[in-house]
């Protein structure tokens, strides 16, 4: 568990334990725009988004460097499933994560608590619990969660816009002059949008629903459990987002592309992409089962249904085959 995760978990489990909280989040994943992966000191410097802010980093099993939380004030509408809208006032936290100095993620989340307040309070009231926004009125938690996960609604409307907030973290990092801004592989940014209903009285097993959207590169994750599950869930979403991006990139940006070029005998231009995938993407596959027994349970359940690791292995083998095949062909020419 990283430091930022810890403090945010505290925000959700702290004073608001009495009532059910809804946590909404969004994680975007993309490639760091640099020719080579960054070494640890450079990554730590890159993740220092604000002066003086501490950066958390772990070397094993994969290098993961996490920026301090950024904070953004909101006072906006919340779309409710089934009926109407509500208003939330408070702050959203976001942070950047780099994995092995190669993959960049922007993660935003907000804990929503219903307090029944009719009027907005002084700003210091909201700063007391960063990352928390108060809902005016008493909407049903499920309506808040499902309203956020409604696939039919554009993520960037007039209501709460975590898409832009998580995007901004990524743009802030990618604009850093420390990067050389060359793109070794062009791949889609993938998005995981998640909502959790955290009920202190939730006695049954936690429930997780994962949905792949029709829109490419977009997944929805809905969770129901106890407030104490938040730290695990938060990390699960980031880990899932990274693995989903890896899998999708391997398939779309590497394999599909290579097969296409193979058919048109243009693979020569793509050989470096295959090498890139094998040398720099494959080692990033590291399911987070080591983190906690609970995480292991969830990841194993995910694997049971999706066979992610199995598919990734197959992709890796195919990429290696293509490289070997092509290697032979180019030597013949």
């Amino acid at each position: 568990m990283s430091a930022p995760t810890h403090s945010r978990a505290a925000a959700a489990t702290g004073a608001g334990t009495a009532a059910t909280a809804v946590v909404l989040g969004e994680v975007r994943t993309c490639l760091l725009q640099n020719r080579d992966p960054l070494a640890t000191p450079a990554t730590v410097a890159l993740m220092r988004l604000t002066p003086g802010a501490p950066v958390s980093h772990v070397e094993r099993p994969v290098r993961r460097v996490v920026s301090a939380d950024q904070i953004c004030g909101i006072d906006c509408g919340l779309r409710l499933a089934r009926r109407g809208r509500s208003r939330a006032v408070g702050t959203v936290l976001s942070h950047a994560i780099t994995t092995s100095g190669r993959v960049l993620q922007g993660s935003a989340q907000v804990t929503l608590t219903a307090v029944g307040a009719a009027e907005r309070q002084a700003w210091r009231h909201y700063l007391r619990r960063p990352g928390t926004a108060e809902i005016m009125g008493w909407p049903h938690p499920a309506d808040v969660a499902d309203g956020f996960l409604d696939a039919a609604v554009p993520a960037r409307g007039l209501d709460l816009d975590l898409a832009s907030i998580s995007d901004r973290v990524i743009e802030a990092v990618q604009a850093d002059p420390m990067l050389d801004h060359s793109t070794p592989l062009r791949a889609r940014t993938s998005v995981v949008r998640w909502a959790a209903i955290l009920d202190p009285g939730h006695d049954d097993a936690a429930v997780m629903h994962l949905t792949k959207s029709v829109a490419p590169g977009l997944h929805f994750l809905r969770f129901q459990g106890r407030p104490a599950d938040l730290a695990m869930l938060d990390r699960f979403c980031e880990e899932f987002a990274r693995h989903e991006w890896l899998l999708n990139t391997m398939q779309e940006a590497v394999l599909d592309r290579a097969e296409r070029d193979l058919a048109r005998d243009l693979l020569r231009e793509h050989l470096d992409k295959l090498g890139f995938a094998l040398n720099q993407l494959v080692p990033l596959w590291m399911p987070p089962t080591h983190l906690s027994p609970q995480m292991k349970t969830f990841w194993t359940a995910l694997e049971d249904q999706t066979r992610y690791s199995r598919i990734f292995e197959r992709h890796t083998t195919r990429v290696r085959d293509l490289r070997d095949q092509f290697g032979l062909r180019s030597r013949r020419n």
């Binding site: 953004c72 909101i74 006072d75 816009d161 975590l162």
Partner: peptide
């Protein structure tokens, strides 16, 4: 040297305007 004023300036969270939904930078 520690740039304390820079550090404190970066800790400031401006009040959210009514309607601020995160789409625009503060």
């Amino acid at each position: 040297r520690h740039p304390l004023a820079d550090i404190v300036a970066s800790l400031i969270v401006p009040e959210a305007a009514v309607g601020a939904n995160g789409s625009r930078p503060p």
